[in-house]
């Protein structure tokens, strides 16, 4: 045994590396389990609670009810303005207007970004509102310009938001002018709507909003503007590049819409998918 250990001793750094990396990978694997998700939320919550103590001492981000109310009012007015602009632009297509639900009726919770775990690849924000403010996983998050993302983890007073700049978030959107729909996703550099047939009416400059088919977010929330139509090699399909209205780098104040994803619709879609044709 001693001989064996003596043989391994010169490689102790490598063995340690293999052991610790395996341990880290194991932690990642168990990460998504129900129990560990709760533990994660609890750990995250306690850490960020400590942050509020620091925040209250330093007073870096003073909060009061009046400021919060003004922010909510500001967001409502901006969404209303968006809606009015859309109505003005789209007044000829009454049919699509009739199907619009009034987004501004949803209750808001104003929140501030505490931290951004956002590179070009993994886009998350941490906000200072959580379960105690009536926030749950799946609620859409906007700012005054448009859609930001959806809530992914919720702790007592804090939550993480998976932004549109996260490749794991895919949202059903549509062209507000022509009504053509698609799935919006982040490719690491740009937001794109993939595989739109080239002959479909989707032009640069068209406004892109959330679709009625989305089970994650309510319809008609402004998302961005179509910037470019890129034909694929086959020429049959195109990718549409979308420039978001929201500035993800500069965002500080957000609003959580207190609506949860349509779980019944999700279940129906899943059931339909499981049934044989």
């Amino acid at each position: 045994m001693n001989k064996f250990l003596r043989y391994l001793y010169p490689y102790k750094e490598y063995l340690l590396l293999i052991f610790l990396v395996t341990l880290g990978l194991f932690l990642q694997v168990i990460n998504e389990r129900q129990g560990s998700s709760k533990a994660r939320a609890a750990a995250f919550g306690s850490v960020v609670t400590a942050y509020t103590v620091i925040e209250s001492i330093t007073g870096l981000l003073p909060e009061n009810e009046e400021i919060e109310n003004l922010r909510i009012q500001n967001a409502r007015l901006n969404l209303e303005l968006n809606m009015l602009r859309e109505l003005s632009d789209e007044n000829t297509s009454l049919r699509s207007l009739l199907s619009l639900r009034d987004t501004i009726q949803y209750p808001f919770v104003a929140a501030s970004i505490i931290s951004k775990l956002s590179g070009r690849i993994r886009g998350y924000y941490i906000i200072n509102k959580g379960e105690q403010d009536g926030i749950f996983t799946g609620m859409p998050v906007i700012n005054e310009s448009g859609l930001i993302g959806v809530v992914s983890i919720v702790a007592g007073n804090f939550a993480t938001v998976r932004t549109l700049r996260n490749p794991k978030l895919r949202i059903a959107v549509k062209n507000q002018r022509s009504g053509i729909g698609g799935i919006l996703e982040w490719d690491g550099i740009r937001l794109i709507i993939k595989n739109i047939p080239t002959n479909y009416d989707f032009q640069a400059g068209d406004r892109v909003v959330t679709s009625e088919f989305s089970t994650l977010v309510p319809p008609s929330i402004p998302v961005g503007v179509a910037a470019e139509k890129e034909e694929k090699i086959s020429g049959i399909l195109s990718n549409i590049h979308v420039i978001p209205f929201a500035n993800f780098d500069k965002a500080r104040n957000l609003f959580v819409l207190k609506v949860t994803s349509d779980k019944e619709a999700e279940q129906m879609i899943q059931q339909a998918g499981n049934q044989p044709l």
Partner: peptide, 23 residues
């Protein structure tokens, strides 16, 4: 490894992701 694990806890990121990379 220890620093990475602490940072995973602090940041709310996926547990183990910074532990592996910092190791």
């Amino acid at each position: 490894f220890i620093f990475g694990l602490i940072y995973d806890l602090l940041s709310g990121d996926i547990w183990g992701i910074n532990a592996v990379s910092l190791t």
